[in-house]
């Protein structure tokens, strides 16, 4: 069994989770500060990938990243790299699809944050940056880690948009999910089933971690 699809899936999901982690926290904080009317609109746009069909996300990504499209042409000209049909193209797809999970979890955590804690820090002479890193983020830690785990699980399961922007090239862009589809199409059900089991195992572990985190968080709240 060639393990490339697993390694490729894991590196894509890891990179996408790292990007989504930072983007989600940053935008959750930024959106909370917007005026109400703008907040509603921006919130819808940022959550949309959660409910859109992956093919729509893939289509929109191709419109931007394709070699003859604005961003794709720019990257090709300046850096000489293609943004589609390469393994890291799947990172873009996974980021867009997994982003709403991280964003909404972080937003929920920030909304539940006790502003008195930030005010107390202000009266003690602390600046906003210190407050964010030392008080706000640690207080919301469990929810934010849970959001990242959920985003990782979703990124790992990405198929639709990925197959459109990265395609399926064995040993180059193949992921676990695209490999399962390919093997099923050529009738290699035995090998497809093995990849299916690998995928189920990883996703189940991610969900166990998620449940454990949430259980721990509830216990922490009860003791408070």
């Amino acid at each position: 069994m060639d393990w490339f699809p697993l390694i490729n899936s894991l590196r894509i999901a890891a990179l996408a989770t790292a990007a989504v982690f930072l983007l989600g926290i940053w935008l959750a904080g930024a959106v909370a500060k917007l005026p109400r009317a703008w907040k509603a609109l921006v919130d819808v746009v940022l959550t949309l990938p959660l409910v859109l069909p992956p093919t729509v996300v893939g289509f929109l990504l191709l419109m931007v990243l394709g070699p003859r499209r604005p961003l794709g042409a720019w990257a090709l000209e300046v850096f000489g790299v293609r943004l589609t049909m390469v393994w890291y193209a799947a990172v873009f797809a996974s980021v867009v699809v997994a982003f709403p999970l991280m964003y909404r979890t972080a937003r929920g955590a920030f909304e539940g944050f006790d502003e008195d804690l930030a005010d107390a820090a202000r009266t003690l002479g602390k600046g906003e940056v210190w407050i964010f890193w030392r008080v706000k983020l640690p207080s919301c830690r469990t929810s934010i880690i849970a959001g990242a785990v959920l985003a990782f699980a979703r990124a790992l399961g990405e198929y639709g948009a990925t197959s459109m922007v990265a395609g399926y090239t064995p040993g180059v862009t193949a992921t676990v999910s695209t490999t399962v589809y390919q093997l099923w199409q050529i009738g290699n059900d035995a090998l497809a089933l093995r990849w299916v089991l690998v995928n189920i195992a990883i996703s189940a572990v991610a969900l166990f971690v998620l449940n454990w985190l949430e259980g721990r968080d509830r216990e922490g709240r009860r003791r408070r």
Binding site: D114, D116, L117, D119, A120, A121, T123, R134, V135, P138, S139, R141, R224
Partner: peptide, 12 residues
């Protein structure tokens, strides 16, 4: 100096 009603101690 501000003593908050909930004390506002940093929980972590």
């Amino acid at each position: 100096g501000y003593l908050f009603q909930s004390y506002a101690l940093f929980p972590t």
